[in-house]
Amino acid sequence: MPSSSRAPSRPEDGFDVVLIGIAARGLAASARRAGLRALAFDLFADEDTRALAHGVVRLRRKQGFALDPDDLLEQLARHVGPDTPVVLGTGFEDAPGLVARLAGLFRVAGSGAAALARLKDPFAFARLLGDLDIPHPRIFTDRAPAGMHALEKRIGGSGGGHVRRAAEPRGEGWYLQEFLEGHSVSVLFLGNGRAARLLAFSEQWCDPGEDAPFRYGGCAGPIQLEETLVQQVAGALSRLTGAVGLKGLASADLILHEGSWHLIEVNPRPGATLDIFDAPPLPPLLRLHLDTCAGGLPPLPLLVPGAGVEARAAGVFYAPAATVMRDALPGWVADRPAPGTRIAAGEPVCTVRATGRDIAEARAVLARRMNHLSRALGTAGRAAAAE
């Protein structure tokens, strides 16, 4: 049974892997599928994570959804020995210094602080892509050129909630990126510090919220792209992997338009597409991550639609109104909050999953399930507000 959120768990308890992130459920599910005993640290310690991991420690939350470095280091010192591999999920995009501290104390399996700094600093990243001849949008520290549509982004931001259209950035810590028309696609890949191996492509979309028009909505896959484009992306990501020493599972966000493509962002960690790709015919992805961090690069073929490959979709459901979780959520939901959890309007409630014979069917099922939750929790929110 999982430990309680602050229950002591000694390093000698025999965990195979330590998982850390804002929400560690996806990593915990991957660990379970790989047959690994996991100790998970995250901000929610939700019911799914408790069921999947062999131990769970709930971390203190700072403003928004941010990890508290002091609390994280304190809890790790209490519960984790120096030899258990530590896998980092979301929450470290703007904290290469913290990643460096963790790597000095524990056996971090994944890309190091130097790689993170080069990939998540937009100016260093753009220079690197230019040096490697990888197409990418232009970025600016001040007002965009006349006639150019641009997006304002926060340095180190993730999830899309920080992205807005703007003509100039608001100040320090923000920048402008050229807005490119096209289809938003993500590619899941492995890196061993020298080369990359593409695993699967997915499409992704936004779920606009108040003051967050580009908030992350979800993903679906696998999708199939033209072979020429696949080879171009594979070559680019191999060059990038070798340049920064990227290791383990990672994802790259692309914009496709009329046969051309641009690389928008690279996340050097396991991410949201675990929900759609950590299933047959692919082997357990966390096991692949650990093996690749050790230097291997398995000769896996690219996952594409076809016989024996189920289309999968996963979306974040955001609270339509302030609510208190009371009733059990359906079985097709993940990241389910514990009963009594208070959730503000616009905050993420859970992840909704769906499958289908193809992407269109999977997304249609997902949309129906989202609508079902919206009606159910909207009613619950109004009832809670009336009390």
Rank of each mutant, 00 (worst) to 15 (best):
P122F: 04
H262Q: 14
S9A: 04
I264C: 13
S4P: 00
S260H: 14
T49K: 03
S260G: 10
F189P: 00
G235T: 12
D48G: 15
A115W: 02
S158D: 08
V57F: 01
D133R: 14
L188V: 05
R32K: 13
I134L: 12
V304A: 14
H372I: 03
P284E: 09
P301Y: 13
I223S: 00
L119S: 04
A23K: 02
H54Q: 13
D46S: 06
I359S: 12
A53C: 05
L256I: 12
V57H: 07
G191L: 02
H289L: 09
E265D: 14
F214D: 11
D327W: 07
R368A: 10
P137K: 08
R164G: 01
K120Y: 03
Q204P: 09
L88P: 09
A367G: 05
L76N: 01
P283K: 01
C293V: 15
R239M: 08
P270N: 12
L263R: 03
L229Q: 06
A313Y: 08
T273C: 05
K62H: 08
D253W: 02
L199H: 02
V316A: 05
R287D: 13
G130R: 13
L76R: 00
A294E: 12
P298I: 02
R215K: 10
P8I: 00
E152W: 05
P222D: 01
H257C: 09
A7L: 03
L102I: 05
G242T: 09
R215C: 08
S4R: 11
A195N: 00
D335R: 04
A113G: 03
P82T: 13
R37E: 08
G295E: 10
A328G: 07
G110A: 07
G97T: 13
R194V: 09
A250L: 09
A250D: 03
F41C: 06
Q75C: 07
V230N: 07
R154D: 04
G296R: 10
K62I: 03
G259S: 10
V244P: 15
Q75D: 07
K120E: 13
T351K: 08
L249Q: 00
G156Q: 11
D142P: 01
P330G: 04
G221E: 08
L129N: 05
C206Q: 05
A313M: 06
S30C: 08
A384Q: 09
P348M: 12
S9I: 10
L199C: 06
R37M: 05
L190V: 01
P268Q: 06
R239H: 09
G346R: 03
F65A: 10
S5I: 02
Q63D: 14
F179Q: 13
A322W: 08
G378F: 07
A117Q: 10
G130N: 05
V266S: 03
A144N: 06
E168L: 07
G221H: 06
R154I: 08
Y216E: 02
D94V: 04
A77T: 15
G218L: 04
G104D: 14
G235K: 08
R368L: 12
S158G: 12
G55V: 00
L282Y: 12
R78D: 07
R369Q: 14
G91V: 09
P283G: 01
Q224F: 00
P283R: 02
